[in-house]
């Protein structure tokens, strides 16, 4: 029971109090670039949730069962990147074979994900916080959901902002950053509820 509450706490903390995007600024590039429409955000968000959950679990196994016994801990950056890239590649091939509609929905987003800093960030955070295997998986999953939540909210806001008048210098990235700042303020309201 205790383990279960611990996992639940990590899950919700990853979504709300420690949102990977709004408190750790990870995954900003695709957040600013792809958040123009709700539909594409859902696709990218789903791909991120999936990749994050499984790569964090995979990298945990690689780090503790391969790198640590071989005293290669310092090479974790290179190895993690390779694992993420390989995982994305394999998933892309499997999805292509198995389900065409899913491939059409997610396919174009998968290559983008390899360079998404949030994925690598989650893998590095889980090492710093000494998570167990189950915790890492849940943390990756929760962070993915949190990222998706943020990009969906942003896409919704930006769609409604199309007709609003924005000062010239703020058009594009400027106003998006301000919205993100206000969203981060709102998410700060969650802080203190759960500590991880």
């Amino acid at each position: 029971m205790e383990a279960f509450t611990g996992l639940t706490a990590i899950f919700f903390a990853a979504i709300f109090t420690n949102n990977i995007l709004l408190t750790n600024y990870l995954g900003m590039c695709s957040f600013l670039g792809v958040s123009r429409e709700v539909k594409t955000s859902i696709g990218l968000g789903a791909a991120v949730v999936f990749t994050m959950a499984f790569t964090s679990a995979l990298n945990w196994l690689v780090y503790y069962y391969v790198l640590i016994p071989m005293h290669l801990g310092h090479f974790r950056f290179i190895v993690f990147i390779i694992v993420i890239a390989a995982f994305v590649q394999v998933v892309e091939m499997i999805i292509e074979r198995v389900s065409e509609p899913l491939y059409n929905a997610l396919g174009i987003f998968l290559p983008l994900i390899t360079v998404n800093c949030a994925i690598l960030g989650v893998c590095l955070f889980m090492l710093i916080r000494d998570y167990t295997f189950a915790e890492s998986f849940i943390y990756g999953f929760g962070s993915g959901i949190g990222w998706m939540l943020a990009i969906l909210a942003m896409a919704g806001i930006r769609q409604n902002m199309k007709r609003s008048k924005v000062p010239k210098g703020l058009e594009g990235p400027g106003i998006t950053l301000i919205i993100a700042g206000i969203m981060a303020l709102a998410f700060m309201g969650f802080s203190g509820m759960i500590n991880i």
């Binding site: 703020l170 950053l177 700060m188």
Partner: peptide, 22 residues
């Protein structure tokens, strides 16, 4: 204290972009 927390970074960068672009 908001400036050293997460939202401050977004506001600061947005403000700087605004000034530079204008």
């Amino acid at each position: 204290s908001i400036m050293v927390m997460a939202p401050g970074a977004f506001f600061a960068l947005a403000g700087l972009i605004w000034i530079i672009k204008t």
